[in-house]
Nucleic acid binder design. Structure first.
Length: 330
DNA sequence: AAATGCCACAACCGCCACTCA
DNA sequence: CTGAGTGGCGGTTGTGGCATT
């Protein structure tokens, strides 16, 4: 039987808090010489008074040689926003799309910077004369704010819900808002042009996004030479093909998502927790994230209980990786 | 110059899924 | 099959530095 490792509790011998340079050295040397094994063994063998978890975190978030330090570029920002709109708070999956960045880093960046920016946008865009009875930002405002952030291509969750009431039925969407959107993606075999309650067809919602093509049917393409934030809208859509057919992930509006998540948790006592990619191995020494992602792909549909399975992140990233500004080579 | 507030980042915590004896 | 151990994840908290008063 393996030795139990109690991290944090009843283990006064283990250090906590900030890592000293000496500890970093020890861990770094050990990892470089021995590679990753059992993390509790790493902690022991490297002579660290830390629990394995702590070592793992330190390595992944700080010491890993392939980490990209420094501020996020605007392109990375956009990618994060885009992926978040698709994946919700699945930071590890989002991080898988940004080589050299960690889930923790992205999570912090989101919570500290992007969330705030969205909030500001929402409040500044909100009309004082909203007749909506609920207190959430209006759909239009939310969508406009999201569009302002990313330059187009997002459909609010409420709009998704309008497209398919199933998606908002608590009995069906017992999981997270993100899953709700994924359910929408798979369950909602959309009509050719779903109508939103404000009278715009779904494709008509393009008006928000300054985009000429149906947002969901527009392959991400800047190969045509459109500028990053311009008409084409680099984030204007994602091709996700199932069975050779184009299906469109009903993208979540970022702002509404936050509200919806809160509401969802309150209603169902549940949080976002059905992550598709459990196999993304961030420790891969050659930092070949693409391969790792590929390894985690599969199980798109997990059976009769309507449990929504994995996103095809590879497909997702195929589109994303076509962004010329994204240099994942380092 | 000191006090206070804010922000970004690092690290911890608790939960869950998976593996293995 | 079962339960202990481990890894991984997202949420949350703690802390240090910077800006403002």
């Amino acid at each position: 039987m393996r030795k139990p490792e109690v991290c944090g509790k009843n283990n006064n011998k283990l250090r906590k808090g900030l890592w000293s340079p000496e500890e970093d050295d020890k861990l770094m040397n050990y990892m470089l010489n021995n590679g990753q094994g059992c993390w509790s063994d790493v902690a022991r063998n490297a002579g660290l008074q830390r629990c394995g978890k702590s070592c793992r975190l330190r390595w992944i978030n700080y010491l890993r040689p392939d980490l990209k330090r420094g501020a996020f570029s605007p392109q990375e920002e956009e990618l994060i926003i885009h992926l978040h709109s698709l994946l919700g708070n699945r930071w590890s999956q989002i991080a898988a799309g940004l080589p050299g960045r960690t889930d923790n880093e992205i999570k912090n960046f989101w919570n500290s910077t992007i969330k705030k920016r969205l909030k500001n946008l929402t409040s500044s865009a909100a009309s004082p004369n909203t007749s909506d009875s609920y207190s959430e930002p209006s759909k239009e405002v939310a969508a406009a704010a999201a569009a302002a952030i990313v330059g187009g291509g997002f459909i609010s969750m409420q709009e998704q819900a309008m497209m398919n009431p199933m998606c908002t039925d608590p009995s069906l969407s017992s999981a997270s808002s993100s899953n709700t959107s994924m359910q929408a993606m798979f369950l909602n075999q959309m009509d050719s042009s779903p109508t939103l309650d404000h009278g715009l067809s779904m494709y008509g919602a393009n008006a928000y996004f300054n985009n000429n093509a149906p947002p969901c049917m527009t392959p991400i393409g800047i190969t045509s030479g459109d500028d990053l934030h311009g008409n084409q809208g680099i984030l204007g859509g994602v091709n996700i093909g199932i069975g050779g057919e184009l299906h469109i992930p009903p993208l979540e509006s970022i702002i509404i998502e936050e509200n919806a998540r809160t509401e969802d948790i309150a209603t169902h006592g549940n949080t976002t927790n059905n992550y598709p990619f459990s196999n993304v191995n961030k420790m891969n020494s050659n930092c070949n994230k693409a391969e790792n992602m590929a390894a985690g792909i599969g199980n798109l549909w997990q059976g009769e209980d309507l449990k929504v399975g994995d996103w095809d992140l590879e497909e997702l990233m195929k589109d994303v990786s076509s962004f010329p500004f994204l240099d994942f080579s380092n």
